[in-house]
Design a protein around this nucleic acid. Structure first.
Length: 202
DNA sequence: CACCAGGCCCTAT
DNA sequence: ATAGGGCATGGT
């Protein structure tokens, strides 16, 4: 099956990605919106979106929905605010680690976005709590780099449609990127969103 | 009351 | 290399 046809099919079926995806697929994004996406990419690890949005609202209500703000806030305060998203002690540390990397080591979100992205990917993966999916969420949805995000919904869909039998992250990522034949971050953003939306619907 | 959700890390085979 | 346990909350 042609991979681009799969995208067209999902796009016809579900329309333009909405809900959380209207921010994640927004183009272009403001600096604040990019930081929100980065924070959400950690909070959404093994959590449902309702819980994530409660945590995001809590951060926003006290003016802590930003990387610099998270970096300077008390760990206990962050923990309390993000509690609804689950694994809150772990995630608070992960957010601070990520914020420290982007703000202090890279010099802010704009400078980070301009880095060579295969290298940046390695640096993100070296941080505790940032694995393949979270790193690629950040690269694709905040920094607009053409990396295809693989997650559990992608694996289920690949299995269901028998697209390939190797379900490792790297293989699936290459499979989608090569199958689409072009490095188009806007297409990758929408496609991944549609895969998740489709997975939740059925 | 059970089970689930856009993961990730650590440990033991 | 790969499997299993732990992390934690709110929704169904």
């Amino acid at each position: 099956m042609d991979i681009y046809l799969l995208y067209k099919t999902l796009r016809e079926k579900h329309g333009k990605p909405s809900g959380q995806w209207s921010l994640w697929c927004k183009r272009p994004k403001t600096k604040r919106e990019k930081e929100t996406v980065i924070i959400e990419s950690v909070l959404t690890q093994r959590a449902n979106w309702k819980n994530v949005s409660m945590a995001v609202a809590n951060l926003n209500n006290v003016g802590l929905l930003g990387l610099r703000e998270i970096l300077s806030a008390e760990n206990e305060k962050i923990q309390h605010l993000i509690k609804p998203s689950g694994f809150y002690k772990t995630k608070s540390i992960r957010l601070k680690t990520l914020a420290e990397f982007i703000v202090n080591r890279c010099g802010g979100i704009e400078k980070t976005a301009n880095l060579n992205y295969p290298t940046l990917r390695e640096q993100l993966l070296a941080l505790k709590g940032i694995g393949n999916e979270t790193a690629d969420d950040i690269l694709l949805y905040a920094f607009e780099k053409p990396v295809f995000v693989i997650d559990e919904y992608t694996r289920r869909l690949v299995k269901k449609l028998q697209l390939t039998d190797n379900l490792s992250y790297k293989h699936l990522q290459d499979f989608f990127e090569n199958g689409l034949g072009r490095k188009d971050y806007a297409l990758y953003q929408d496609f991944h969103a549609l895969i998740v939306i489709d997975g939740k619907s059925g």
